[in-house]
Design a binder for these strands. Structure first.
Lengths: 327, 327
DNA sequence: TTGTATGCGTTATCAC
DNA sequence: GTGATAACGCATACAA
């Protein structure tokens, strides 16, 4: 049997109440007794029972993190940071993978979120209505990489990311740029499209439609790029950008000599290919840390939405367009 | 306030005990009342309080999974599978990232494992002695991708993986093969070295020493490969293999024409590079599923260790060695 | 088959 | 500053 608070109290010759205070409200107990209790607790290897504590305090010590796909390096990076920051504040993290399924997502948050001290919804695919239902629960909920239902959220500046990428391509001489979009329901994808609208007339944008946010989606989009006549393509994320590069090359198109490619995220794999991917870097670890800080913060954040900056990282997949001027 | 069992009981006009039984021991209650209670519970949106249930039953409904690095795609894949399988049996999963630190690892398992229904230690870096201490706790513990301390475990056939890889290289004509090892404390790395010892005299093996199990480790090993005179190199994992390929090329060595490269794991990124990586595929999802099944199984598994098969996947980074015979 | 009473380990509320 | 005691929500031994 595990050693309980009463065991500690008995061994220290004090009441359970005093033992409890000595450990969780040290100021309320006389210095010598406090130290005595703490020493005894350490010697006995006492670990407070989370369940009992939760029952009375209402706080479980657990945070719940929901992601669409743990194997996607974007979410893995956020999960790692969340986990690390949560530990620093004494919380364990229950991580649930919703398998890109909005229905499962809603079910999981209902099931797991009920007894968590806070819920982090990373890139949820569910509708604003479902988000609203979730928000109806009293526990704090925070959206990561998504806005909606008036919930507090932390996101990145998607529009600025698009602006930076296109500005870079424009400076290189590109005048016709394609956008290979992510899944239809993606909030961040919608924001990027907004950004493309707001660009002005210097660059013509060709919309290639929605694709699965993975390597295969990029492969599919590559053929559309060639048909579009664009000299550069912006992908919804790095995985798609990789698929684009691969397929373009397979069709005899040089990257970046013939077509430039820009990704989004700056996931570790972006540097594992040759040439390394030019991409709009998201502050993934910071996203995770900020999310925990806001969720656990003393009060609701002043602004419902916290926006983190992004930064274009120019590497090997962008270059001036081939010279097509008439001689 | 959340709806409690008493609320359900009151609304259904029965006692709390009957309500409890209707939900968790349906056979013990009369059919009509049972259905009545269940319907009322559903309508009220009743969710049992995990903490209260744990306090009385001793089971928390949580599984604890410890990994050295969530961002490593190997562990992300295992975590995803564990999470999915655990959900099927009504368990949530607390995932902790030990940051490749044996000390943190031990601390986390002590902290988180105490109140979990079971603990999964994936590729733990801690010593057998520390493993022993962990095992002393009563809760079930299962090792994944590691054996030790007499604990039950699920692993892959590392020796056979090495055998398959070297056999492939030998068939291509390679006679001198280098091995770029992983971290010094890695159990699987040790097993692979065992496999290399047992190969017989047909192939000469050059040991390149221990490296960090990431891209950078492969980069460092690449220069050693060239100095070793080997025509092929086996890497501890795919990430290292990618680093090897990258650095070899940077130094003007063609892959696979001049040097062949074989990885381990078959992590998704293995197919995202050109040419795709020849690698020893580990059944990652199966590893995770099997781990949960064994952990939750009715009794200790018959054999303390369950071994899963591996399979060499030949792709683009292996080819016959350059012809170096004297003319 | 159903209800009553008890206790799980901890913290909060009181007296002292 | 400290110690009894109650209470959190649920499952179970026991009584009916």
């Amino acid at each position: 049997m595990a050693v309980t608070l009463r065991d500690v109290a008995r061994a220290a010759g004090v009441s359970a109440a005093t033992a409890s205070r000595a450990l969780s409200a040290p100021d309320l107990v006389a210095p010598e007794r406090r130290e005595l209790v703490r020493r005894v607790a350490r010697e006995l290897g006492y670990r407070p029972n989370r369940a009992a504590r939760e029952l009375i305090t209402g706080r479980s010590g657990y945070l719940c993190l929901l992601v669409p796909d743990l194997e996607n390096p974007f979410f893995a990076a956020v999960a790692k940071a969340v986990q690390s920051r949560a530990r620093a504040s004494g919380h364990a993290v229950v991580i649930a993978d919703a398998e890109e399924d909005p229905r499962l997502e809603a079910e999981l948050v209902a099931q797991l979120g009920a007894q968590a001290d806070g819920v982090l919804l990373c890139s949820p695919r569910m509708s604003d209505d479902d988000l609203m239902t979730v928000a109806a629960g009293a526990r704090p909920v925070l959206l990561v990489n998504r806005e909606g239902a008036g919930l507090p959220s932390v996101v990145v500046d998607n529009r600025d990311g698009v602006r930076q990428a296109v500005r870079h391509l424009h400076a290189l001489g590109h005048r016709r740029v394609a956008y290979a979009g992510g899944p239809a329901g993606s909030w961040s994808d919608a924001r990027r499209r907004d950004g493309l609208q707001a660009l002005g007339p210097d660059v013509e944008v060709v919309d290639l439609g929605a694709h699965p946010p993975a390597f295969a989606g990029g492969v599919a989009a590559a053929d559309l790029v060639l048909a579009s006549g664009a000299t550069a393509v912006l992908a919804h994320n790095d995985l798609m950008a990789l698929g684009l590069v691969d397929r373009l090359r397979a069709r005899g198109v040089r990257v970046p000599d013939d077509v430039s490619v820009v990704g989004f995220d700056d996931v570790p794999v972006a540097t594992l290919v040759t040439p390394a991917l030019t991409t709009v870097a998201m502050p993934l670890a910071r996203l995770g840390r900020t999310a925990v800080d806001l969720l656990l913060g003393p009060r609701e954040p002043a602004a419902p939405t916290t926006v983190l900056p992004v930064e274009l990282v120019v590497r090997g997949t962008t270059a001036p367009p081939p010279d097509t001027s008439e001689p």
